[in-house]
Amino acid sequence: MEEVAIRVRGVSHQFGEAGEQRFVRALLDTSLDVSRGELLCLIGPSGCGKSTLLNVIGGLTQPSAGAVDVLGKPVRGPLPCDIAFVFQENALFPWNTVIENIELGMTFQNVPRSQRATRAQASLDAVGLTDFAAHYPAQLSGGMRQRAALARALSLETPILLMDEPFGALDEQTRMILGEDLSVLLARSGKTIVFVTHSLGEAVFLADRVAVFSARPGTIKEIIAVDEPHPRKPEFVTSEKFAALRNRLYGLLHDEIRKAVLQSGLAAGPVASGPL
């Protein structure tokens, strides 16, 4: 068994061609290894290419240069049996109920019909949405929608989970509760997870390691290890260790965020909203 689940080698990515107005160098020569069962957080200023890296790992974006291996296989497109996504915005289909959404994911993944209902129910139970199976996404709160999206991803039973600011649109309290629940849930699952966030606290609370990105063109500036067993307790947030790590991240990020703000102020080009 190989110990590295995701291997990123020299990945660069740009949108558009040099000289064009929409030309953006999103990622520059980024390399990274993620071990099996590890939770890695990507953190950095807006538009630094952390979501782009996630999409490259997941095979949704072909990088301009470099290569990604997942579980020893080169990534050339989506790998629905190995990788599941949870997106920031509501990526549930609004015309389907929660349970239909989950079962539809398994339909796409070609799970036999006989297993879909049981697996959907199990993943709904796991995220605490048992009673909301027949609700439509529009009838749920933002936090519940993200739980449902997580349930959909869990039901796919992939060894790898990629999460793109899954709690980015939620309020601080909901975000905290979901973070705690996620830590418990994922400690049991043994999944390899890459989690994009721009919340320092969320990164320290969830991650085994935090990769800090520089401003555009983004690359990994430093990787910080969070040596704390899972599942993390709520008390961890108030510990000195947590504060020290958070402060260190803040120090690393502060200059990069200043740079990024300056960039977006000078060149009002597409920042984070480039093509996927």
Binding site: P78, F87, F93, F108, Q109
Partner: peptide, 13 residues
């Protein structure tokens, strides 16, 4: 586009 991306990531034909 997000719906299409999400479906593709789950292996939709």
């Amino acid at each position: 586009r997000l719906y299409v991306t999400a479906a593709r990531s789950m292996g939709a034909s």
